[in-house]
Amino acid sequence: MRVEIAVQDTAGAAIAYDAGAVRSELCVALPLGGLTPSIGVIRQIRSTVPGLSLHVLIRPRPGGFVYSPAELELMANDISAAADEGVAGIVVGVLTGTGGVDGGAVETLRQAAPQLEYTFHRAIDHTPSPLAALDAIAAAGFTRVLTSGGAPTAGQGVATLQSMVATGSGLTILAGGGVTIDDLPALAAAGISEVHLSAKSIHRPSGSGVPLGASDTEGTSYQVTDPVQVAAVIDQANRLG
Rank of each mutant, 00 (worst) to 15 (best):
183 D>N: 12
238 N>M: 12
204 R>H: 09
67 Y>P: 04
98 T>P: 00
17 Y>Q: 14
162 Q>D: 13
107 E>S: 15
227 P>A: 01
188 A>C: 09
104 G>E: 15
195 V>A: 07
196 H>Y: 09
142 F>H: 01
101 V>I: 15
53 S>Y: 00
205 P>N: 08
218 E>R: 15
48 T>N: 06
79 I>L: 10
236 Q>S: 12
231 A>P: 12
52 L>H: 01
73 E>M: 07
37 P>Q: 07
136 A>K: 14
8 Q>M: 14
102 D>P: 12
17 Y>C: 12
189 A>K: 12
62 P>M: 04
3 V>C: 04
186 A>C: 05
239 R>H: 08
221 S>D: 13
100 G>Q: 13
146 L>Q: 04
2 R>S: 05
53 S>D: 06
39 I>Y: 15
186 A>Q: 15
74 L>D: 07
20 G>S: 04
129 S>E: 10
141 G>T: 01
35 L>A: 11
26 L>S: 04
14 A>M: 10
65 F>E: 04
81 A>W: 06
4 E>I: 05
157 G>D: 13
178 G>N: 10
109 L>Y: 07
20 G>D: 05
64 G>A: 07
153 T>D: 09
133 A>L: 00
239 R>Y: 06
59 R>Y: 02
223 Q>C: 08
47 S>Y: 05
176 G>V: 03
147 T>G: 01
194 E>M: 11
1 M>F: 01
74 L>E: 11
8 Q>H: 01
17 Y>D: 14
118 Y>V: 05
210 V>L: 12
177 G>T: 08
17 Y>V: 05
207 G>C: 09
113 A>C: 12
24 S>K: 03
149 G>W: 13
14 A>N: 02
100 G>T: 13
33 G>W: 00
38 S>H: 10
88 A>F: 04
45 I>G: 02
210 V>M: 15
7 V>G: 01
159 A>F: 11
221 S>H: 07
100 G>F: 02
235 D>S: 15
167 T>W: 14
18 D>R: 15
66 V>R: 06
33 G>F: 00
112 A>G: 03
27 C>A: 07
153 T>H: 14
169 S>C: 02
54 L>Q: 03
51 G>W: 06
184 L>H: 07
6 A>G: 11
77 N>E: 14
182 D>T: 13
150 G>Y: 07
45 I>D: 05
82 A>M: 11
138 A>S: 09
9 D>A: 03
208 S>Q: 15
194 E>T: 11
7 V>C: 01
27 C>K: 09
224 V>L: 07
71 E>C: 03
105 A>F: 10
128 P>Y: 04
194 E>G: 00
145 V>S: 01
192 I>N: 05
153 T>Q: 11
197 L>R: 09
81 A>S: 15
130 P>K: 10
137 I>P: 02
104 G>S: 10
139 A>C: 00
198 S>K: 03
186 A>H: 13
155 G>R: 13
2 R>K: 08
189 A>W: 05
106 V>R: 05
234 I>V: 08
205 P>G: 06
193 S>R: 14
215 S>N: 12
184 L>Y: 06
74 L>S: 08
126 H>M: 03
213 G>V: 03
147 T>K: 04
